[in-house]
Structures are given as C-alpha cells and as structure tokens.
C-alpha cells in the first residue's frame, strides 16, 4: 500500500511543481513569481514529509523545521523591494 501511495503522491507533486514552475516562468509580475516560489517551497517540504513517512526515517525533520522557520524571509524581502521599485517608477 505504501508503494501505491508513494507512486500517487509522486505523480501529484510532480504535476503541482510543474504548475508552479510554469507560473514562475510566465507570471506577469514579480509578486506572482514570489508567490509561486513559496508554493514550490511548500511542495518540496511536502515531498520531504512523504519521503520520511514512506521510508520511516527522520533525517529531513530538522530541514523541515528550518524551512518552516526561515522560509518567509525571501518573500518578505522581495515584497519590500518590489514596493520600493514601483514607487520610484511611478513617481518619476
């Protein structure tokens, strides 16, 4: 049963990662790309979880905690800078 679950979740997560990468590639604005990158990070975390659950090890657990701790820094920084850039280009 675990092998079936692994196959199904691999297919589903691959399709999801493909969709997120398509949105990163053709997102009309920078914020769309940042949001899709966040979703891609969540998909990577989901893949780590499923690998640990199916193979019954805990090697990636600290990586998962670290990702959930500092994963927000990137999108906060980019959101900060996109606000500044658009401001200047609109005022000038």
């Amino acid at each position: 049963m675990m092998q079936l679950v692994l196959t199904v979740t691999t297919v589903v997560l691959s399709l999801a990662a493909g969709g997120a990468i398509i949105r990163i590639a053709r997102g009309p604005s920078l914020l769309d790309r940042v949001l899709a990158a966040d979703v891609l990070l969540a998909i990577v975390g989901a893949a780590l979880c499923i690998d640990m659950a199916v193979n019954r090890h805990l090697n990636n657990l600290m990586l998962l905690v670290a990702v959930s701790l500092i994963g927000f820094v990137g999108s906060v920084t980019v959101a900060r800078f996109v606000a500044d850039r658009r401001e200047k280009s609109r005022e000038s």
Partner: peptide, 21 residues
Amino acid sequence: VSAVFMVVGALMSLAAAVGLL
C-alpha cells in the same frame, strides 16, 4: 489513515498549482 492523509496532503499542492495557473 496515514495513506489517506498523504494523498490528500499531496492533492493540496496540486490544488495550489491549479489555482496559481
């Protein structure tokens, strides 16, 4: 139960990708 949770949790990622697109 854990198999169902894993499949549903993976489907959440797929739902997010479909929503993004």
